[in-house]
Structure formats: structure tokens, C-alpha cells
Simulated scan of single mutants.
Amino acid sequence: MSSSLEKILSEIEQLTPQEQLTVIGHLVERIKKHINQAQPKRKWSDLKGMAPYPLLGEDAQEWVSRTRQEGDEHRERLFRE
């Protein structure tokens, strides 16, 4: 730990609990601003082309058809029981 940080922490310990809460609030607000600046908002269009085609080795239309068929079969089994 740096000597300047040790000095600051020592001085914070001298403060009243209310003053310490004020210090904490100040630090939280500074960190919030840093986090918001560090992570810019992303657009869905930024993801375009990131996944290889076909994803997981299966064509999208084949996946849709297969999952629809599996869903139909599952519902038919439920109604038979």
C-alpha cells in the first residue's frame, strides 16, 4: 500500500461516521461515472458476423424445422397419455 493511501485511510479514520459516509458516497459516484464511461453502449448490429456459420454446425432453418417437429411430437405424446 502506498504511503499516500495509508495517509488518506488514516485521515478517514479520524472522521465522524457521518463524514465517513460522505466519503463513501463521493467514491461511489466517482466509480459509477468511471464504469459508465468504460463500457459504451453496444448495438445489436455490432454482433453481426461474430458467430461462425452455421452456428453449432446446423443451418438456422433446419434448426427451426427440427425444433418445431420435436415440439409437435412432444405435444402429441402428452395428449395420448
Rank of each mutant, 00 (worst) to 15 (best):
E81G: 00
W44H: 06
M50W: 05
K33A: 15
E58W: 07
K33C: 06
E19K: 10
R77H: 05
G25W: 00
V64H: 04
E13W: 02
S10V: 01
I12E: 07
L9V: 04
Q69T: 09
I35H: 01
D59Q: 10
R80W: 00
F79T: 01
P40G: 08
R75A: 12
W63I: 15
E62M: 02
E76K: 12
H34K: 07
L56E: 13
G57S: 11
K48I: 08
P52E: 15
T16H: 01
V28Q: 14
K32N: 12
V23K: 05
G25N: 10
T22F: 07
I24W: 11
T16P: 00
Q18W: 03
L47W: 04
L47S: 03
H74W: 13
T22H: 11
L56Y: 15
V28L: 09
H74N: 08
F79P: 00
Q14E: 14
R42C: 03
I24D: 09
E6K: 12
K48M: 07
I35D: 03
Q18V: 14
S10I: 00
N36V: 08
V28P: 00
L56G: 11
H74V: 05
H74T: 09
E62C: 02
R68W: 07
S65G: 01
A51L: 13
Q14H: 12
Q37W: 01
Q61C: 03
P17L: 06
G71P: 00
Q14V: 09
A51N: 04
P40S: 09
E11Y: 07
L55P: 04
P17K: 06
Q37V: 07
G25A: 01
K7D: 12
